[in-house]
Design a protein around this nucleic acid. Structure first.
Lengths: 328, 328
DNA sequence: AAGATTTATGCACTCGATTACATTTATATA
DNA sequence: TATATAAATGTAATCGAGTGCATAAATCTT
């Protein structure tokens, strides 16, 4: 049905090689034939078949993006940054959902390999990454985002979680607070670990004892934020401030506090990660560690482009963005 | 580098045709050769090259998803539903951002055509759709989601916006409210128009006069929700209830009310569309029109699959999901 | 004007897999 | 046992575009 180079060639009275050269802006084509061919392309409404082209050139101009969840603002903001950057170079993005499962992550990886993507950007489901060997073997460039994977060396774009969290806790300490609780994420994720590290380090530096009873660990989801805040508030001596390790748990925690606010005879405030659209209306929070989410996506795309263009150093590049402390 | 059918064929001592048949589960292959081939595939770590396959079969097992924005929970929840459903059949999804621009929408469409996607799911940027002729010509199956396009007949998955909005307004009327304001979306979108229609229809059916001064139109973004609520509250006689046409404007409006709450000598409540994770903590809202977002994605995928498999009727199918009124 | 260069174009193979058709081998039938 | 039939495999063309090499045409040299 659709016109091919052959049709165009016949129509223009030239060979397919010439048509191909016109399409690819080969300079050694005379102005006359170029126009003739372009006219035929126009008239036949010829559109290139990138499948055929890819087969020959071994380039698909497609990258894969694997993340643990699609309906997640953080991940999708990264994806947006990636898409934005990468399409400028004519690439497009196949988006895959690993569902926070290592198995599915592996499975998506296989799929993308079969589809011959030129590169991948992965937000790992876990730091457990034995299956990441597959990446190495495949020789497909990979850039990790937000989290690292044990035993797998690759380019990565992260934020300085430790100092981000540290600065928030330090700020609270300087404001005179001593009893600062913590709600952490899944400790199998580097980001969760680093944030916890920032918390403990700040306390240690200011000689404040670490009280396990005001430290809880959730899983970065709203429901667990709700639960953990509940547990904290039901403790013997609840903290006056709670640092919450991500946006979604922050939402859950706020939900709990809103529901139970009148019944609680204890005032609590929140410091948290991520300044999303909604953060400003989450009423208990006045200290925010903001990370440059779009930039993360841009940078990941940029690193990947470098690898795909072969201008790579042997050494993996780890880019860490600084966070920004916002006080309401 | 990577092994091809040829390599496998040589290694197993058979022809490439036989290898291909094994890969594609052709039943008329003897158990013996099948095992031999599978063993070679294993040993050579052969992976199929779907580019080559697609060229021959004219199927890419890839669909396109074009939406006006990536970092948008509603769109991405639809995308999630789509991905979920479609990957069961071995498809994957190229996600494109039209940036709410008709031009970019067109441009993405061209890209996806070149990439030979088997179908597309589109959340249109506008009801203006002269460029949708391209779809017709291309003969690539398309399913529209959430919004229709003028003059373009295609399968679509929508919700019953009119009755959804109607039921909420009716509920408020039955509770004794008479002065119900309205914040609408961009009227170039069918969804915005239908919701407004539901509002006016309910008022008319209950013989309540429509007061233009308590009706504002934004653009479905948070910022405009903020602005419009501000305008309403600064009006001479602000309404007691406001129906807000979508989640993001709801957020913006709430933000305004939270900031100015103490200074307003007028109490206002909100009814709104969409029950997202955060809706429950948006403090002014107690009436919600909930739409089955994931289902929308599933259904769109399903319709598209039907078209792609050619089991299509000539007539476009329009599926409209009922909404569900939730009272807090 | 004949040969050397440069420029423009075409021929034909290739990428990796699928498949119609041909051929071989095994099995059933008379 | 010869023949018909079914099952298993191979041969070779094909999908649509790109490209090394060959060739033709145009331009330059001397």
């Amino acid at each position: 049905m659709a016109a091919t180079v052959k049709d165009v060639a016949k129509h223009a009275g030239v060979s397919t090689a010439t048509v191909s050269r016109v399409i690819n802006d080969d300079p050694r084509i005379s102005e006359g034939t170029r126009e003739k061919v372009l006219k035929s392309i126009e008239e036949l409404d010829y559109k290139i078949n990138s499948i055929a082209r890819s087969l020959k050139t071994n380039k698909t101009y497609t990258i894969g993006f694997i993340c643990p969840e699609l309906a997640n603002n953080f991940f999708m903001s990264v994806a947006k940054g990636v898409e934005d950057e990468i399409r400028k170079q004519g690439y497009s993005v196949i988006v895959c959902n690993s569902n926070e499962s290592i198995e599915e992550e592996k499975e998506r990886f296989r799929l993308l390999t079969e589809k011959c993507v030129d590169g991948m950007i992965v937000i790992p489901a876990s730091n457990e990454g034995s299956h990441f060997n597959l990446f190495k073997e495949s020789r497909i460039p990979v850039v990790l985002v937000d989290r690292l994977v044990e035993g797998f060396q690759a380019d990565a774009v992260l934020v300085d979680n430790i100092n981000g969290c540290y600065s928030a806790v330090e700020y609270l300490i300087n404001k005179g607070h001593r009893r600062i609780g913590f709600i952490g994420g899944d400790m199998r994720l580097t980001s969760a670990r680093e944030r916890y590290e920032g918390y403990t380090r700040a306390l240690a530096d200011y000689c404040i004892p670490i009280e396990d009873c005001i430290i809880k660990f959730g899983d970065f989801h709203a429901q667990s934020g709700y639960e953990m805040m509940k547990q904290l508030m039901h403790g013997e001596n609840p903290p006056e401030y709670v640092f919450i390790s991500n946006y979604f748990m922050h939402i859950g925690a706020t939900k709990y506090l809103m529901e139970k606010n009148s019944q609680l005879n204890h005032k609590v405030s929140i410091a948290s990660f991520d300044d999303m659209e909604l953060t400003s209306i989450l009423g208990f929070c006045d200290v925010i560690v903001d990370q440059p989410i779009s930039e993360i996506g841009y940078k990941a795309a940029e690193l990947l482009m470098e690898r795909m263009n072969g201008t790579d150093s042997i050494f993996p590049q780890i880019v860490r963005f600084k966070t920004n402390l916002k006080i309401k």
